[in-house]
Design a protein around this nucleic acid. Structure first.
Length: 235
DNA sequence: AACTATCGCAACCGCGCGGAT
DNA sequence: GATCCGCGCGGTTGCGATAGT
């Protein structure tokens, strides 16, 4: 890249949390000049009378001050969409954000890292690949065998996951015997070796983290989840 | 009540992309 | 083609709030 100057190397520029006064100045500026053009973000601090770098101004505006931002908890629909899109796009938060009006990439990234990712891990699903951890191990072993045999690897098998919040004592007693806090009951519904259905019965640990009435259905569609009840993501 | 651990979110940092020159 | 420049992206950090002991 060609010798770009650091954006925030000027001395005397303020960092850290924005004050209400700074917010006001930025909002005033962007309301009066926002659509008019004739400026770039680097100019904004000067024009708006702020001692911030332009990058910081842009970030503050896009992540917090924009009037079309939706604040507050994510709805189940939004969570489902985030998971679906993440399965397709990976960590391309801006692309994901483009599909969720009023949500910023930073918002979604934070929500993913603090809520969704953790829950998926607790369910034994790798948030990076959207596959079960043990399934990944099996797949890697298979891939190694295939490579040894000099054959091309199989197409990626999506792992359909159905979670049922079945807290009946019998099931839990049956399940609560592993080192893991939960275990799986697997039933392949005869999906032709491709998209079978895996039923995971939740043991107490996960079940307790879900609302009492919630069930959690994860069905993988062509690439992502087609349908997903995510009651237990309501924290 | 005091202390510690954990969580959640705003903000920062560094890098790459793409348009302009 | 090389360089400059602005912007946007994704990863990470800092810190206040809250929960747990």
């Amino acid at each position: 890249m060609g010798g770009r100057k650091p954006c925030c190397d000027e001395v005397g520029l303020k960092k850290g949390p924005w004050t209400a006064e700074e917010d006001g100045k930025l909002v005033d500026f962007l309301r009066t000049r926002g659509g008019g053009g004739g400026w770039c973000w680097r100019d904004v601090p000067k024009l708006a009378g702020l001692r911030r770098c332009g990058k910081s101004c842009r970030l503050r505006w896009t992540n917090y001050l924009r009037p079309d931002l939706k604040r507050g908890l994510f709805s189940e629909d939004e969570i489902q969409l985030v998971i679906d899109l993440h399965a397709r796009l990976g960590n391309r938060w801006s692309k994901i954000a483009a599909e969720l009006p009023g949500r910023t990439d930073n918002d979604i990234k934070n929500y993913w890292n603090t809520h969704i990712k953790r829950k998926l891990i607790r369910m034994g699903i790798d948030p990076a690949t959207h596959r079960r951890f043990d399934q990944e191990i099996v797949n890697h072993e298979e891939e190694e065998k295939i490579l040894v045999n000099g054959q091309s690897p199989p197409s990626e098998t999506e792992v359909p996951v159905v979670l049922e919040n079945d807290t009946s004592a019998g099931n839990l007693n049956q399940l609560a015997n592993d080192d893991q806090p939960w275990s799986f009951l697997m039933e392949n519904d005869g999906g032709g070796g491709g998209a079978g259905e895996l039923t995971m019965l939740l043991s107490g640990d996960i079940a307790s983290s879900c609302s009492s009435s919630s069930s959690l259905w994860l069905k993988y569609g062509d690439l992502g989840y087609e349908d997903l009840e995510l009651g237990c993501f309501d924290d």
